[in-house]
């Protein structure tokens, strides 16, 4: 019987200095915060973080873990939080920032998932995303002569996703919006799931409906109740508005932030 259950510690032990992480979820929704809290307490540094970002990126930037951020947006999506650490790092020029559009980000992950060097799209044409990221090439379509953006493959070493329920073999169900997580697990790195619940293999298949995440993509599963808090995990819990507001307040003072974040998140 396949058993991919592991521990948070074992997952974090696989993340080395300079690693590239792709983080699932969207804004404050269904972020793998149990993994990220443990990562925040570890000595790992110089990470590249790829995310539709909110608390995940802001926390790691605030604790000095991030060398480069690759993002489709940075937003708490209406929840009472703000990207205080991230904004400060951008304003001070202390962070390599690769701002992409939402679809350019997706296109880069698609390229990685299909083991292609790039993915063509019109997104980004005529924008400053191209002037800010001169490594992104504009190509001419072979059949029509159209100009297209060739988004380079965004290849993560480690993919961290939080789900509602997973089984021992890594099959998983997401009860709310899957966002881009079905794509992310295929991006070619080691994929680890944190799950509100872990159940015996076979149980999830009983209802006969298609699975959201398939076990063969998954390297490890950890049961982490409340694993996305203080973000949301529909329908289990909503964002913890008080905690996010407190976080945002604490982030105003970089001196005390790291101590606060390690104790409180």
């Amino acid at each position: 019987m396949i058993d991919k259950q592991t521990t948070v510690e074992n997952v974090i032990a696989q993340i080395h200095d300079g690693a590239t992480l792709l983080i699932g979820g969207w804004g404050p929704a269904r972020k793998p915060m149990a993994f990220l809290r443990a990562l925040a307490k570890s000595p790992v540094k110089d990470l590249t973080i790829m995310s539709f970002a909110a608390l995940d990126l802001d926390l790691l930037v605030g604790l000095g873990k991030v060398k480069k951020a690759i993002y489709g947006f940075t937003s708490f999506e209406g929840a009472p939080g703000a990207m205080v650490n991230f904004r400060r790092a951008r304003q001070e020029g202390a962070l390599q920032a690769m701002e992409l559009s939402e679809y350019m980000f997706i296109a880069g992950i698609k390229a990685a998932a299909e083991r292609l060097p790039f993915y063509p799209t019109r997104s980004g044409l005529g924008t400053d995303i191209l002037t800010m990221n001169p490594e992104i090439e504009v190509i001419t379509a072979p059949y029509t002569g159209e100009k297209l953006v060739a988004v380079p493959a965004l290849k993560p070493d480690i993919i961290l996703i939080h789900v509602n329920v997973a089984d021992y073999a890594g099959n998983a169900r997401i009860f709310g919006d899957c966002y881009l997580d079905r794509l992310f697990v295929r991006a070619g790195g080691k994929t680890f799931l944190s799950a509100e619940r872990v159940v015996p293999t076979g149980q999830l298949a009983e209802d006969g409906r298609a699975m959201d995440i398939l076990g063969p993509w998954v390297n490890g599963v950890v049961e982490c109740p409340q694993g996305a808090a203080p973000g949301s995990c529909y329908p289990d819990y909503d964002v913890d508005a008080a905690k996010l507001a407190e976080y945002t307040w604490a982030a105003q003072d970089p001196e005390n932030f790291s101590a606060w974040a390690k104790d409180n998140l």
Partner: peptide
């Protein structure tokens, strides 16, 4: 561009929408 005075959510879906 590299040391902005104000930082917002990012270009988000605007590049795909405007093409």
């Amino acid at each position: 561009k590299y040391r902005p005075s104000m930082v917002f959510v990012g270009s988000r879906g605007v590049p795909e929408n405007t093409v």
